[in-house]
């Protein structure tokens, strides 16, 4: 094993599959429903969460011995909110266009329960390097699901991927639409995100029976 020890790489790989924050721990569902109607938004959200999780876990890990346990949740919330607002301000000043795309996500990142969950469950009790890896791993696990859901919702709901009309033009009736295919507008609504996540959970558990709870 090269860069990472076996224990360390488990921190990254576990959340991608057998301990996925969305499909196994069922955290962060609200943002998974809210922004997966298109693939681009899913990707932007994944990258934002990757950043906040990585840095946030390190900050909490650094402070883990001085945070009073009675108010630790509030401290975590302050750290997340602080990070997100600073990023938002810097983007507004130096990358205004990008910041407008991201502004919608700011509130969703602060309230993302995966972030709070990892702070609470991992960073408060582990060293900096391991906390960093855990943050990255969980953010990736979250991002993977977001991107899968976003892929199917945009493809089936709008017939596009990242804005490109991959199935032809629904108004001009070209491509698949020429033979009578129609976009399913229901895919764009939040309930379908829940159903897509449900299908993912079902597929994952049917392939790995060990994940099924009694």
């Amino acid at each position: 094993m090269g860069l990472l020890s076996k224990k360390d790489s488990k921190l990254i790989l576990d959340p991608l599959a057998d301990n996925n924050p969305i499909t196994i721990q069922v955290l962060g569902i609200c943002s998974a429903l809210a922004i997966t109607a298109e693939l681009k938004a899913s990707i932007v959200m994944s990258i934002s969460v990757l950043f906040v999780m990585g840095v946030g876990n390190v900050v909490i890990s650094l402070m883990r011995n001085i945070i009073p346990s009675k108010i630790r949740i509030i401290v975590q919330l302050v750290v997340v909110a602080f990070l997100v607002i600073i990023v938002d301000l810097v983007l507004k000043a130096f990358a205004y266009e990008l910041s407008k795309t991201l502004s919608v996500f700011v509130g969703l990142i602060i309230t993302n329960c995966i972030i709070m969950g990892r702070f609470e469950a991992f960073a408060l009790g582990n060293g900096i390097w391991r906390s960093f890896l855990d943050g990255i791993g969980n953010a990736l696990g979250y991002g993977v699901i977001l991107i899968i859901v976003g892929f199917f919702r945009e493809l089936l709901g709008s017939g596009t991927l990242l804005g490109f009309k991959v199935l032809g033009d629904p108004i001009e009736k070209t491509g698949l639409y020429a033979i009578g295919y129609e976009n399913n507008g229901f895919m764009l609504l939040s309930p379908m995100a829940l159903i897509v996540v449900g299908i993912l959970i079902w597929v994952q558990r049917s392939r790995n029976k060990a994940l099924i709870e009694d």
Binding site: N65, I67, P68, S69, K70, V78, F82, I86, L89
Partner: peptide, 28 residues
């Protein structure tokens, strides 16, 4: 644990709010 004391908790909260608040105000 020393971090369980009420006085420590209050001081920590005050210091944290002051630091975070002034950093944000400065950045803004």
């Amino acid at each position: 644990n020393r971090t369980d004391k009420n006085s420590y908790t209050i001081i920590f909260a005050v210091v944290m709010v002051a630091i975070v608040g002034s950093l944000l105000a400065y950045a803004a």
